[in-house]
Amino acid sequence: MTRAPSRPPPAGRWPLIRALLLAFLAVWLLLTLFPIYWQFITAFKSTGETNLTVPTFWPREWHPENFAAIFFERSNLNALIDSFLIATGNTLASLFLGSLAGYAFARFPRQAGGENLAFWILSNRMFPPVAVLIPLFLLFDSLPWGTDSRLSLIILYLIFNMPLATWLMMVFFRDAPRELEEAAYLDGYTPARAFIKVTLPLVLPGMISVAMLCWIFAWNEYLFANLFVGTEVRTFTIVIPTFSHGSQTLWNLQMAFSLIAMLPPVVMFIALRRYMVRGLSLGVVKG
């Protein structure tokens, strides 16, 4: 409809090919959505129905109380709370440190260490965590708060979220015109005050998107959580897989729990769509 007139219709000359391509797209979309659909309907089934030899593709009767059962269990609720606190704490720390460093890289590139240092910080995000798990475990074990604490994960997740925040904030600070800041200096603002009063409001929308991205990555993290916590602190990412290890596999409850747990990242992701195409390709490098 609002298609740019400049866009050529590459397959337009051959409607058949166009139809085939669209069919391919549709099939992939179906394959993408089917697991989520299955998760959804299973979450509403009764335990008996999930154990049928021939699974039903539509629930015979709906059991929304499965979701309530998740919240009645204290340990499930605690897992969600732990995940929330860890993700939020880590996001705040990543954003704070990343914004300051990103600002320095954007405004004073040479004095801040230059492009190479910025790229080195980014490269930490791609680092294979298995290469450092054991020494990190021993290191945190010797610290007063130990490994099995929220603080340990909040610090560890800086490995992948802080470089991301630094880079994306650097891009956003570059886009904010420095002339405004300089005008503020002329009005007698100190650099710190000009930063807070002038530049920060400009980058705030970008900052919120970075925060959501960091939050999603921290909320989803599995490997570090699996190794470092488990007794005092349990994130939902390690609780959900072990849900089925009991004598009876309660698939419906497990699916209900996972639906609840994946709701926040999905909602945030949809909120992020404005930033999805431009710039986010840098951010989606997996942590």
Binding site: L33, T237, I240
Partner: peptide, 16 residues
Amino acid sequence: LMVLPMMLPPSIVGVV
């Protein structure tokens, strides 16, 4: 919709 799976927690993807 097509990018959605990427944003799901890996442990949930594994379980599902």
